[in-house]
Design a protein around this nucleic acid. Structure first.
Lengths: 144, 144
DNA sequence: CTAATTAAGTGGGATAGAGTGGGAAAAGAA
DNA sequence: TTCTTTTCCCACTCTATCCCACTTAATTAG
């Protein structure tokens, strides 16, 4: 379970350090894939395996299922964590999420999301502006 | 298990490099055959053997089974990976999948699919346009 | 409290390997 | 033979990867 928000810089070689609190829960490789709202999802390898298994269970004969399998699997990448705790962001994904220097790591349940700093800021503001909806949800889950 | 999308160029001799992450999981030869949705399926030799066995087990009297057999088996070709990690795409298959310069390799579970860049782009957009089905499935498989 | 030590985050250089193109030898086809 | 296709080899470019070093912050020792 990943929580917290960290900002790190991606260098010219598209390397970024993983926040050290997250690193402790990860093995030597992780899976990156396209998420929703132009962010990247990062899964521990084991968690990804579960997702892949679910997908494999969809019918091969069904054209929609084939499409989803292609869509979700092809956009994923397994990347290894180097000796100094960094990953190399594949350029297709960096482009998709519009990452440049500043990368925000956000822990969300079983996954970590990678956002470009600008997009993250804009998205956060948008969510905060829907304060009453937020309050409603917090109430529903018994947090306040 | 193959994941990821890679674009490589096929030269005038119809040679294409296999993406190096895939190469690690392959022996010196692979099997190419006609796939569904006008792409080429690439299987590791061992996996192909299982598929061929499965197909052989299908009822011979069933017209659909015979059709599928012919479709998948008749144009299957075993090709060897050369010293620099390339394969030579048989021209019948290249023609079938309408490959020209840009070839997209898509890892989908136990197989790798080869697409012409244009067809891949068109197909991806089509899948992406089904946003509600996509969101539904993401939820179902526990990705979000 | 200060000095020494460790770990985290960042940057750069060097090397090995991936991806690509082309030429020449070898094998078939006409 | 002659022409084409395949196979093998070499070479070039670019990028990923490895290794080392610097900085800052946090931790520990004296």
């Amino acid at each position: 379970m990943f929580i917290g928000e960290y900002t790190h810089t991606m260098d010219a070689k598209r390397r970024v350090s993983l926040p050290s609190p997250f690193r402790e829960e990860l093995d030597e490789s992780v899976v990156l894939t396209r998420g929703l709202d132009s962010c990247i999802f990062l899964f521990p390898e084991a968690a990804w395996q579960n997702i892949a298994d679910e997908l494999a269970g969809l019918s091969f004969g069904d054209a929609d299922a084939r499409g989803l399998n292609r869509f979700l699997l092809s956009r994923a990448r397994k990347v290894t964590i180097d000796k100094s705790g960094r990953i190399l962001v594949p350029d297709l994904l960096a482009e998709f999420a519009d990452l440049d220097k500043e990368v925000v790591f956000a822990g969300v349940h079983s996954r970590i999301e990678l956002w470009g700093a600008d997009q993250w800021k804009r998205y956060s503001e948008e969510v905060e502006s829907q304060a009453d909806l937020l309050a409603q949800t917090l109430g529903d889950i018994g947090m306040i």
